[in-house]
Amino acid sequence: MSRSRSGVVARVLLATGGAYFVTSSTLAAFCIVLFASGMSRVNAVALGTMLGFILYLCLILWVFSSRRPWQVLAIFVLVIASENCMIFVIGHGH
């Protein structure tokens, strides 16, 4: 992986911040989908938060091992945007 200073800073930001927002919005979407498909709220959230950390870990490792961080960034942006759209559309009214 590139050892240039800006490359390292970019990867650290992408791993901590970017991967965090991907995980966070995926969890929200996951909970809404589970709740909408009949699981009780408390179970949906408990299951989601337990799995969330594993997803976050995988994303962090992906950011640091990837050869093309720009591609990862693009995928992150795409995922965050689409999940937030979904939350906006079906997440209203609890």
């Binding site: 995980t23 966070s24 919005s25 969890l27 929200a28 979407a29 996951f30 909970c31 809404i32 709740f35 709220r41 408390v42 949906a44 959230v45 408990a46 989601g48 938060t49 337990m50 969330g52 950390f53 939350i87 997440g91 609890h94």
Partner: peptide, 30 residues
């Protein structure tokens, strides 16, 4: 991992807010 799970709602408040009108509801229920 279990330490993270104990504080999970601090780290991912969005998941609670997505399905609970009042986030404290989850705390009481769980």
């Amino acid at each position: 991992f279990s330490g993270l799970v104990i504080l999970s709602t601090t780290y991912f408040p969005g998941s609670v807010k997505a399905v609970y009108p009042n986030p404290r509801g989850y705390f009481f229920e769980v």
